[in-house]
Amino acid sequence: MTISPWTKLTTLSALLLIIAVASLMIGYTFYSLPIVINCLLQKTHEFAINDVRLPRLIMAILCGTMFAFSGSLLQGIFRNRLASSETLGINAASILFVLLGITLWGGGGNFSILIYSVIGALCGFSITLLSSISRRNISHLRLIIVGVAISAFFRAASQFMLIAEDQKLAAYLAFVNGTLYTTTWHSIQIILYPALFLIGLSFCFTKQLDILLLSEDIASNIGFKVIKWKLIIIILALLLTAVAVAGVGSLGFIGLISPNISRLIFGYSHKYNLLGSALIGSILTILSDTIGRIILVPFEIPTGLIGIVIGVPYFLYIMRGMKQEA
């Protein structure tokens, strides 16, 4: 008996809803369900829910979705299950450029952060891609190794910036590890419209992504412009990553594992796959954030670190499944 994809999607959405409401309830102070519902309906106003947990929740859903999408797109393009914005060095590069931009031209709290982040994403990705091409060919494992090395490089550079320019960048210390701690309604405003636009745009490309999973010869035989669509989708993935990084910093392996889990559940068709990966990405992000918040109150563990702790075992599991390099 096969379960229809829509049933699976509904189950996942229900799960997301439950976890979302739970994350609003649980925390340093516990609120019962009626209070949370009243707050959501704007009948009462609890600072902890309306101004702290709700923005975090929305940010988690947005950024989780975006990281998951960029992971899905990149994995589709490279046909590589280890590809994601984190393992290709895009996140780290974006972070560095945000820090650089803020130090050089200022403008920490407004839209310019998006521009810095996009430039960083483009730089990071092109460096990774260029240094992993050899003989017009990209080997799967080498791409990831190069990405990881580039990541280490940019991360070190960002730490260097933090230490050297500590008076300007002290507020961004948490940003490097990826956190939802600094999320406010204002920071949501910055990324909301680009995020919604890009997420909506991604759904227009499901068909192209499905075709790209075929071999390049077959794709071009049926009259499909491989290079053109690859380029468009890569740019879309980079923009998604950049906006998400501008929102929360790097969330580690969320972008890597959500597409993989989604593929396990929904198979290869991107129509359901993308939706699933968005839901799973949001669920994982909310979970990491909530775990980070409640595991040892009143301390808060950056979401990105929890993301790494959850993600690395899965990463190793995927590696185990990968065949020896062809």
């Binding site: 190794i145 790494i308 702790v309 690395v312 075992p313 190793l316 590696m319 185990r320 390099e325």
Partner: peptide, 21 residues
Amino acid sequence: IGVSNLKLVLVGQAINIFLYA
């Protein structure tokens, strides 16, 4: 997982990041 030269680095790096976190 199986040892190949490139894999060794990736596995090691993953564990590195894990312990770092």
